[in-house]
Design a protein around this nucleic acid. Structure first.
Lengths: 217, 217, 217, 217
DNA sequence: TATGAATGAGCTTTCATTCAT
DNA sequence: GATGAATGAAAGCTCATTCAT
């Protein structure tokens, strides 16, 4: 199933492995590719190296992937699905708590993927990849947006703010918090509170927090 | 004057142009490099192409730059200074207004630079560049942070938020708003309001806005 | 067997050929390199040319040799062993006869090598090569020296001459006789007699020659 | 005078300097060329470097020399004359003494020239240079040969040896003794005695030595 | 199918030489 | 005459990709 899906996303490729051994080889190549891309960067990794690391011959690489780029796209698309956060239920409790766990969760997944730096290396050269990522982001944005809209209808969210703009901001902060570019690690508690202020009027936050407390008692 | 500074930053490689024509050629190379890097990506651009695009011979490239990377570093360091926003005076008036102009201004400058994608392509391979950028970010962060601390002391900013975390968030939103990754252009008015909520308690915003109105009357 | 030795000397660079065809290709490259080095000089020969002459692609060259220099070192070290003359048995018979065959034999081997000019082109730039050759010469010198010492103890060689100086002279004349620099080919019979005079007192020569004659009768 | 001569030897060149300043520049270029060739080797020295070292512009180099090779040929031909040893007067005294001073003298001159390594670097690529050197050697050979012939006619030299072969041997030993390739410096006294044995029958040496002693008393 | 040797276009860089000033 | 910036051919070397085995 995953296979069929991928194929559709990535385009036709030279050979559909049926036997188990073949599947293993393809996986080994993907794993090796991922490892080397992350460790050494995309351009600095050669197809030969990936093959060697996977324990197969150079030529075998091209039986499973049309080229280095395709292998990479497999990695990206495979991992992208994992990144979609669940649609948040804002009213379910203390929003700060919710955001905090959202942040932690997202970072955890991003940490597992680790391809972001590599993605970004390829981005300027690969409009296809750019499109793929854009779509993934659109998905995430919509998911967050929908939740916000519902909350806004109930008056839980600032009325004078566009849910789309909020969603965008939340997403951006989410994304960047997970990366540790800046060196200074971000305090997720602070960030959650901060985002809370951005989304909800103070009185709503108070109310939701006290409701939550009541519930847990 | 600016020149001397830049040279200091980059290192005075093969030759410091004195004659006007030489300066023009160096500029042409820089322009061509910038254009091609942005259009085709860093790795996809060769020194030969840059030279050709600048209308000079391949060898001439190497009279002015030790290699492609150095040319790129010139571009980056030259433009980096432009990106520093002025330290905001939060109390000076309507904070939403202030943030809005900050955003517009920053985008304008970023638009002029446009190297962000290329930078990001090189980042994983170039620790030097990473360090340079990290420092630039540190500078921006400190600048924002200081303003926030002063405002916080006067009680204008949420007391339970770390200025550093706020600064980080503002910076991240600023940066990302300026890029047009997502395709969906961000409404800067909305974003300004949003950031305002994040930084200032509602009553402060109201007060500052009414003061501002009083002033302008 | 010889192979293992050589590899050890040169270092096992990019790849040790196992299949027969690969060995053939490596040999073809070595042959082509040798031919072109001798014909056109070391600097005037490019890796590309060697590959073309051997009927393989440029890249193939680099599968077998890390660079031009390594190919050359292979040639040199391979041939150097051949140059060691057997330790001469001066007392075994007519020394002039002995020297004559020594000369002919040495020239034959040198003729097969023919790399001397190329070696000498590289020498000033390549301390490694210089060291290698120095050692080879030391070996040859020692070999000749030992024979002389034994002969000197028996009083067959001028007592007031340092064996080392004689050996050096013999070696130099040997080397240079084999090369045809001067255009005027050297008469080996003459040279043998000449060296004989240099090494042995006249009466010893006479005695050894008559002994030899007695033997052959 | 030297100028005219050189021109003839080397071939026409772009410009005949008349003014004193020009001559100085040409000399500076020659000196710089010589210095750099000896220090860094021929191929490793660029025309630009020679010009810079001489304190003139790159282009100026080509006003005085058609190319790098021509400059080098100037150096070689200029110095070659110095290498011709005086025609030895074998009967003038102790031949070992004579040879010793010949050796010392020759080495001294070679030391002053120092171009031998560079010459040898160029030799395989430059048939012209090869021819020049061959001729120089022929000259030296003839000079030595003539002396030997006269001595031979008087019965001072082995009758059964070809003067040409002797001359060749003397020359070769001379040349090689002067270079210090082998690391082990040659004892010139020993070498002189050795060559003496090669050229003169023992009784002649004795006679000439005692005559010499008589003279000096 | 799997192999890995072979390919060769193409990149970076150098430097002898020219030529506008 | 002198300058030194500009030229561009050519070298060394890499690596994505092909293909004979």
């Amino acid at each position: 199933m995953r296979n069929g899906n991928d194929e559709n996303l990535v385009g036709s490729f030279p050979f559909v492995p049926r036997q188990e051994r073949a599947v293993k080889k393809k996986d080994a190549l993907l794993q090796s590719g991922r490892y080397l891309f992350i460790t050494k960067g995309y351009e600095n990794t050669t197809a030969k190296e990936i093959a060697a690391h996977a324990g197969v011959a150079t030529g075998t690489f091209y039986r499973y992937f049309s080229d280095k780029r395709q292998l990479f796209m497999y990695l990206v698309k495979d991992k992208l699905a994992n990144l979609l956060p669940p649609e948040p239920e804002w009213e379910a409790g203390d929003p700060e708590q919710l955001l905090f766990s959202l942040l932690e969760n997202y970072q955890q997944r991003l940490y597992e993927v680790k391809l972001d730096k590599v993605v970004v290396e390829l981005l300027p050269k690969d409009p296809d990849l750019a499109e793929t990522l854009k779509e993934a982001k659109r998905n995430m944005h919509n998911r967050i947006c929908n939740g916000l809209k519902r909350a806004q209808e109930k008056g839980h969210v600032w009325k004078d703010l566009d849910p789309s703009a909020i969603a965008w901001s939340v997403l951006v902060l989410l994304e960047n918090a997970a990366k540790d570019d800046s060196g200074q690690s971000i305090d997720f508690r602070q960030l959650a509170r901060l985002i809370g202020r951005m989304v909800f009027p103070p009185e709503i936050i108070k109310r939701l927090q006290s409701e939550q407390q009541a519930k847990s008692e």
